[in-house]
Nucleic acid binder design. Structure first.
Lengths: 241, 241
DNA sequence: ACCTGAACACCGTTCAAGT
DNA sequence: ACCTGAACACCGTTCAAGT
């Protein structure tokens, strides 16, 4: 009954009662990564933002940095999969899944490396998504070991394009790097690179390997759509097999 | 004319004349990453192996860590693309490209995150590869803006699957993590996850999201092959468009 | 030209101690 | 139960100085 809410009232973040819980830490981490990027992110900086000592985080996340990043990565999968009812069109369902996943990551582009390139993201992932993809592919005509192969192809396709699209630029002075890189691209010899130079205005900074900005600044929409249709057309033609 | 090869003869790595050049540093870095992984890799450790001070590396690689990793990543593309002659079958050429790239990365699985998830890899990449893919896709029937979309789809497909397949396991005590993760997968409710539990023996540790080992220990061969055929069949059906 | 050496401003994590 | 506080063993990078 004795209330004492006046403790530590000079603090920047007002930490009434028990300030920290796991969800709050994860949310703050995501916000920090959104602003600073993954390279600039550290537990110590996060702790500073939360108004606690770095070591306090270990009580809530015994696994430390990896556990935290696993939880952060899992948020990208929230609400990407819609319900699939028997009789629904599998291709439409897959299209929507791919687009919603991509949209979700474009809202937090800096976590893209976590999803594509670190198995850590597994731990937090909802098995519902796995179950649904299997259901949809069965309805598309796959079964047995081939169904599992198709499942792997679909997951790789869903994550792969976006991981690459949103791959971060080097963290050094980005304009220097961009200028230097653009120069080297634009000065290629048309004799040796006829197609590349012919299509330069369509490709410069818009195509993999010859771009100097990430997809977060330069979305690759039409490339993604063609990729998506490629995968769906391919699955359709292999479904009978 | 005065030869003095006896300098510093007590050193572990015998550094005759000028010990360091860029190529040597890159090779040593790759070897170190192969053994320790990307997380365990540091410039200081690399310098120790080379018998120099960490700061010596900056004379050869002014861009520091990023420049070094860019060069390391570029080695994955060496000799993946075969020559393409007019009249050759574009599908066969693409098949070989994908397989050779995958094979190249399986020899250095720890650098996979650099290629998929960091734009830094661009700097060292050979524009020949770009030119060749454009040539092949034109021969497959693509042209104009759609050719560029197809190019982006092909690059994303080539890099995407392998990046995911070789995504590294968390660096903490790996067996602990694996056991814990396997338990959580195997104890899923068949009522709620009928397909996933039905296919568990085919999927456990062999399919994305429900595996606890990287593709470097557990290659996903049949998944890759179906993915490859999916992309090729899809491109074939969209080439007319 | 090529490398040493000291210094700066950081990291993640462990462990004991406080309340 | 939840957090502080000190300590450990590291980082990448800059800058001046040596040869």
């Amino acid at each position: 009954m004795t209330k004492k809410p006046k403790k530590r009232r000079g603090r920047p973040e007002l930490r009434t009662e028990n300030a920290l819980d796991r969800a709050q830490i994860v949310a703050a981490a995501l916000a920090l990564i959104d602003r600073e990027g993954l390279e600039g992110f550290s537990l110590r900086q996060l702790a500073r933002h939360l108004g606690v000592f770095p070591t306090a985080l270990y009580w809530h996340l015994p696994g430390g940095r990896n556990e935290l990043l696993g939880d952060v990565a899992a948020t990208a999968f929230h609400n990407v999969a819609r319900p699939f009812k028997l009789g629904d069109d599998w291709a439409s369902w897959l299209r929507e899944l791919f687009r919603r996943y991509r949209h979700s990551l474009h809202r937090h582009p800096n976590i893209a490396p976590l999803l594509g390139a670190q198995l850590v993201s597994n731990s937090g992932v909802n098995p519902d998504l796995v179950e649904q993809i299997l259901t949809v592919l069965e309805s598309a005509g796959f079964s047995g070991p081939r169904l599992i192969d198709a499942y792997n192809a679909v997951v790789a396709a869903m994550l792969g394009f976006v991981t690459l699209e949103l791959a971060p630029v080097p963290d050094e002075d980005p304009t220097d790097w961009a200028v230097k890189f653009e120069d080297s691209i634009r000065s290629l010899d048309p004799g040796h690179f006829p197609h590349l130079t012919k299509y330069m205005n369509l490709m410069a900074n818009r195509a993999f390997i010859v771009r100097w900005e990430s997809g977060s600044r330069n979305p690759m929409n039409s490339g993604f759509e063609l990729y998506l249709e490629t995968v769906i057309a391919g699955l359709r033609s292999l479904a009978g097999g």
